[in-house]
Design a protein around this nucleic acid. Structure first.
Length: 180
DNA sequence: TGCATGGCGCCGG
DNA sequence: ACCGGCGCCATGC
């Protein structure tokens, strides 16, 4: 399996991503704000695959390569031209619970918010709001899975792995403001 | 197996 | 409104 990694500049700063597939039909494996976070995710993938490799014999090669389509969609999103990137994702790490949480968060529409408790319930564990927060902190594809739309049940903003300021910025792009 | 660690939630003071 | 405490739950070491 071939994994591509690349970096580009956007309205919210540099973004680093990892992807696979073809130019017309890319699958995003990771999207984040730091090269370090990308490398960490790559490590997790290797750790997970190390176990799978024993059975399948499969392996990876990683190379630097851009995806014009991925970059175009994200830039259009930041410009406000589209409300959904429509990009495909591929989870190569993460527990069952984490994947369920990510899938639940993906369904939150542009301009709307949900809460950690509600996401936990949607993931099948109604009282696991805290754990849902942990899982969202490991969201491998920010923006594509809009975990920034998950806020605290009391209406306050809550945390964000890439920094609370960026969370507010992403929400403001959708007409939701946190002046405080 | 146990224990600490979180992007939480709720109730008191 | 702002805390502190306590309960909650999935992970990692």
């Amino acid at each position: 399996m071939i994994l591509h990694k690349a970096k580009f500049h956007t309205a919210i700063g540099h973004l680093y991503y990892l992807w696979t597939g073809t130019g017309n039909d890319p699958e995003v494996i990771f999207l984040g704000t730091g090269s370090k976070s990308l490398d960490n995710h790559l490590k997790q993938i290797m750790a997970v695959s190390g176990r799978a490799e024993a059975e399948t014999g499969g392996s990876f090669t990683v190379s630097e390569k851009k995806s014009p389509l991925i970059e175009k969609k994200l830039i259009a999103y930041f410009k406000g031209a589209i409300k959904d990137t429509g990009l495909k994702t591929l989870f190569m790490a993460g527990s069952r619970f984490e994947r369920r949480v990510w899938d639940a968060a993906r369904k939150i529409p542009f301009g709307e918010t949900s809460s950690y408790g509600l996401i936990a319930a949607a993931a099948g564990s109604p009282w696991a709001g805290r754990a849902a927060g942990n899982a969202l902190g490991k969201n491998p594809v920010m923006i594509i899975i809009p975990c920034h739309r998950v806020i605290k049940s009391d209406g306050s903003c809550g945390g964000f792995s890439a920094g609370p300021d960026l969370k507010k910025k992403l929400l403001e792009l959708e007409g939701i403001s946190y002046t405080t």
